[in-house]
Structure formats: structure tokens, C-alpha cells
Design a protein around this nucleic acid. Sequence first.
DNA 1: GCTATTTGCCAAAACGTTTTAGGTGGCTAT
DNA 2: ATAGCCACCTAAAACGTTTTGGCAAATAGC
Lengths: 363, 363
Amino acid sequence: MSNTPKRDDIRPSGPKRNVTIKDLAAELGLSITTISRALNGYSDVGEKTRKRVAEAAGKMGYRPNRNAQRLVTRRTHNIAWVQSDNDRKFVDPHFVEVMAGVLRGARAGNYDIVLSGDTPDRELAIYDRYVNDNSVDGFIVDLPREDDPRISYLLDMQRPFVVHGREARSARYGWVDVDNYGNFYSLTRLLIANGHRHIAFINGDEHFTYALHRRHGVRDALADSGLSADSITVLNAVHPMGNAGFKLTTLALDDRRISAIIYSSTLMAVEGNGAIQRAGRKVEVATMDDELHYLDLSPFADQFSFVRSSLREAGAALVAELFRQCENGAAPSGHTVPSTWHPLPHLDASVLEQPLPPNRRGT
Amino acid sequence: MSNTPKRDDIRPSGPKRNVTIKDLAAELGLSITTISRALNGYSDVGEKTRKRVAEAAGKMGYRPNRNAQRLVTRRTHNIAWVQSDNDRKFVDPHFVEVMAGVLRGARAGNYDIVLSGDTPDRELAIYDRYVNDNSVDGFIVDLPREDDPRISYLLDMQRPFVVHGREARSARYGWVDVDNYGNFYSLTRLLIANGHRHIAFINGDEHFTYALHRRHGVRDALADSGLSADSITVLNAVHPMGNAGFKLTTLALDDRRISAIIYSSTLMAVEGNGAIQRAGRKVEVATMDDELHYLDLSPFADQFSFVRSSLREAGAALVAELFRQCENGAAPSGHTVPSTWHPLPHLDASVLEQPLPPNRRGT
DNA sequence: GCTATTTGCCAAAACGTTTTAGGTGGCTAT
DNA sequence: ATAGCCACCTAAAACGTTTTGGCAAATAGC
């Protein structure tokens, strides 16, 4: 197989010809203009003609060629999702949960997702390709880091995009995020209000903004309660770490004063539970639960206090925001996904009813 | 907002004009034919011309408009994946693992994945749309059932596709599958060879062919060992069942004679382990492990015997097979993903070395 | 009854490529 | 010298839509 095709080389050809707008026009004795305008619901075509066209289109099985449409309209009805291919993060269960929401939202608006992935160093090249070759109308960016280069790039190129999460520039683009700061502020206050003075916080990788914001929430709650930094032990699950919850919990419990642990995710809380039991300690556990639909974590519902949000809902909101930009030309805006509280009954949860102090509303 | 556009309605327009092949031609004083052929490596353009074109293309930032290419070539470099949207299966962790392989394979061949999802009853409509609107070159079908309508449809339409798994018609299309039958035949023989006479088999939903083939493997191993059906207890995890491994294990252990359990997945084996310990029983456990990269199951490696396969490898093989069909026009063929055995050391594993009887090679 | 407006339709251009079907000029072989 | 060939290049058609600009007939306004 030569890689420099000769002039007579035959490329593999696609499927055979479909019914086109021309066939319809010929069949009905109308112009293709009229067919097109009838099918697209323009007002300058008569009612009986519109009916005739619709009927013939159905009968003859006409389906518009999307690529011709995309060529002339410069709109694709495609949304890009570029997944970064770290051995682990590639298949992060959170990804699939968000994607489930995205797919539902996309379907509702008759969009498709164009999915691809590459290693972090080649990720931007894919963005560049999509931006320049008219493959997609907009982008969804997941798991931003501070000063994320993907975001700089898309801002530069002035393409529609929405970020799942927030970072420094978030005023300038559309985003959807859970209230990481507020939730962890409140989780911390909950434990403090219930007498805990030495708390461990087992967080995600603070390379990502979500984890950073969570730590800031914890930090500020501590400060607002008049406690010193000595009261908190922060441990981070950096990337390739299996069973992180177990390992970090074991580490945290070395400090005998620790009486409560805040986990960044229920999965880590479950893993950590094993370590707590093995150590024979009684520890108050609070966590943020992402409602991963493939795992039934209900058996743990009576062991942890948690605040829950729906990643699926976030996914749907991402697409909705992108629609607003692409279809209606709306200015980008930010959306916070709501959370619900599930404190354990033995706790005094009145602190959750108090609003956050005005200077503690975001990060 | 009216939904019947007037003739002067302005549709949201896409990004501004890029550099086209015409601009290149004008700049270099060549015809667009020559530009096109130079860029596509045809042999009837001079060496210095080719250089000039390549250089100018780079300098001017030329990127071919994919939609124009797709329109004329009728090839898209897109592969469709339609995910069925059951509340749970939508986010099945196996999906994302296979997808990781698919994405790597696609990237390698410069393809993208067009991803969408809908409820099972509207799934076929999406296939129909993709088949007729020139959005994709081929399809990947996951988790087939026996006589799967998606497969009938694609066979009828004569579109390239590859199935992850096998069913009745598999001789007529391309597939990639693990040796479900053989693996479970051997798992069963392993336990029998080590003295177990009452075995529970906790299987997936036999509505799917993979689970059916697994049960057939178990059944035949039993028969070949001269054991009656009384020796096996089959339990199925049907769809919306959280913590299925735990529940079904508890059920299975009601039979006090059970001394060994075969699980269809490591996740269920892990769940079941809790039930076994709670019952205070000593049970030999064997499972098939799908190597889910987001979960570190290595802590359990010394508790179960298992046979392992890589879903990621399967994903890459799916795309590779589709390429063969789309690019080279190769006839569809089937591929079995290899498995590796990890029997616990206290077991006599010699039975694993014996080949399957010739009449037991498939299902 | 005449003009102005609205209604319903259309021819042609445009989108940005690839492919078809050559054409030209120089070299080789006779 | 001339036929034949080869190396290099091109004009025009095609892919299947949407959009532009307009035109003719019907209706409304007076």
C-alpha cells in the first residue's frame, strides 16, 4: 500500500447516494429553494405547498445531508469534549456521571458530543484542530486548574465554551459549578459546632481548583470559629493513588487527638471507614457526596453526614449554558448546582441553617 | 422567539472565515487543483511545488474545512457510539473503561467519536439518523443481547460496524470479545479440581449475551466433570440492583453446602466478601476481573483467584477492526481479547494448563 | 380602476473541498 | 524531424445544502 496515492488510486468510497433536495424538487415540480424553505419552516411558502413537501419528504425518505448543511451554515450541532488521558483520570467515574448529564442535555437540544482524548501535552492540539476545522460549535472543559491553558486558548480564539468548575478568569466565561467553598465551609462549621477541635481534611489534588476551593472553605470556617490552623490536618490524594482514602486515613489517625474527618468524596470516606474500624477509633465523618449512580452507597448513608450534589445535573446545565451562547447568542454566565444536606441525626445541625457570612460567599 | 423564521431572520452565524485553498492558490499563483493534490500527496505534482505549497499552508495557517471534505468524499472520520440511557447502565464503569481504549485507538487513526445516548426505545432512531445523514463512517455496538435489533438494523443498512461481544449472527460482522465461555469453563474446572462439589455462580443479567455465554461455560464444565446440575446454584444480578454482590451472596450462603463461589465481576466479589465474612464462612472465591483502572482492587488480589482481561484493550481492538473495514475495505472479522490467569497459590491449577475439549471451544 | 403591498415562488450564487478529464511542453526513441 | 511518452499543471464539474435578490400574481387601499 503506497502512501502517495497515484492519480488513479481509488479511495474507499462512502455509502451510496441518498435522496436529495433536488430529487424532491424534481418530483414536485418545485425549485430547491422552495423545498428548503418549506422544510425549514420559513413563512414565505404556501400552506398547501408546505404540506405537499413534507409529505413527499416523508414518503421518499428524504434526510438532509448534515455535512452540506454544516458547510454552508457553519454550524455543526456538535459539542466537543476533550478528555485528558492520564492512566487513571481518563476513566474517572466522575467523568462518566457528568457525561451522562451532558448526553441528556445534548439529546434534548438535538446536539451530539464529539469525544476525543489525548495525553495532556497534546490536548491543546485537539482544541486547535476543532477550532480550525469547523468540527464543533463549542467546547466543554472539565476539571480546570488555576490559569488553565485550555481556557486561555478558547478565550483567545473567541469560541463558545463552558467550564465545569471555576478558576481565576471565570467572570469572562460560562461555568457550572457546585459551591465547593460554601459546602466545605459548612461541613467544617458543622463539626466544630458539635465540639470537634481536631479535624482531618482528606482532600483531592489541589492542583485542581475544586480541591483548592474546598480547602479554602475549611480554612475560613476554622478562622471564623476562632480556631488555629493547628486544629486541622490537611491530606491530599495526589493523582495515581489507589485506595487513597484508606491510606490517608491511617496517616491522619496517627494523631490521637483527631476526632472527626472531612472527606472530599464518599468513595474515599468508604475506603477510610475501613481504616477507622481497624484502628478501633470512634470518628465523626462528614463528606461531600457526588451521587455516583453506578455505585449504591446507601448502606453508608447512616454512617456519614454528607452534603450531596448531582454531577448529572451539572452536566445537563453545562449543555444548557452552551446552548444559550450558541443558539441565542447570550452572554456567558455562571451557574451553581444546588446541594442538599444530610447531617446525621445525633448532630446539632442548626449551624447549617445560618447563612454564610457575607465575606465568605465565594472564593 | 418565533419558531417559524421569517425570511429576514438572522440565524446565529458561525465563526468568521478561515484561510481556504483558494487563498493559497491565489497566493502561490497555482490552481486549487494543484494545491489540493499537493497537500494530499498525489504523485503528479512536482517536488518543489509540493514544498512551496506545504510551506505556504503552514505560514498562512491553512486548515482544510472538514465539512467540505466530508461533503465531497462522503467520509467523515467519525465513529458513532450510542449509549443506552438506563439510569444505571448509562454510567456503567465498564463503559468508560472500554471507551478509554476506543478513544486511544481512534486518536491513533485520527478518528473522533460521536457520542450520544437515549432511552432504549429511541436508540434505534439515533442509529437511523446517523446512517442517513452522513454523520459517521461506522458504528460500535456495546453489550449486545441475543438477536439485537441494533445489529439487524446495521446489517440491513450495510453499514460498517463492530460489536463488543457476540450473538447469533456474529459470523456476519466484526466483533471483539473476551472468551467468556472458555474463561468460565476453566474457572469452574479449577474449583472442581480442587474438590468443590457445591458451587454458587453469581452472574450478570443473562439478557446480555456475555452473561449467557458465561453460564454455558459453567454448565459445560460441570457436565464434563460428571457433576449434576444440583452442584451449581446460579444467581443473576438483574438490572437495577445496588450492592448485588452482597445480596446474592447472602442468598447463596443459605445453602450450607456451598463451599465456593464464582463471581461474574470483581466488584461483586468484593461486595460478596462482606457477606461471606459476616456469615463466618470459609468460601473459595473465583472471579473474572475486568481491570477497571479507576479502582485499585489490588488489596483483594490475594483473596480471590481470577482471570483478567483488559476492557481497554478490547476498546482499542474495536476501533482497529472498524478501521480495517472502513479504510481498507477488509471483510469483517472477529477478535478474542486475551486473558491472564491468577489462581491463588494454595490451589492446584494444573487444570488451567489443559486445553479446552474440542467441542467446548465456543458458544 | 389604479397603485401599493403582500404572498408565493424561483434562478443563481455561495460554502470549500475533491475529482474528472484533459492540456502543454520537453524529452526520448526512431 | 516526428511520434510517443512523461512530468506537471489546470478548468470545470460535482458534492447537497442555504441564502440572496428578485419577480409575478394576488390582494388591499383608496
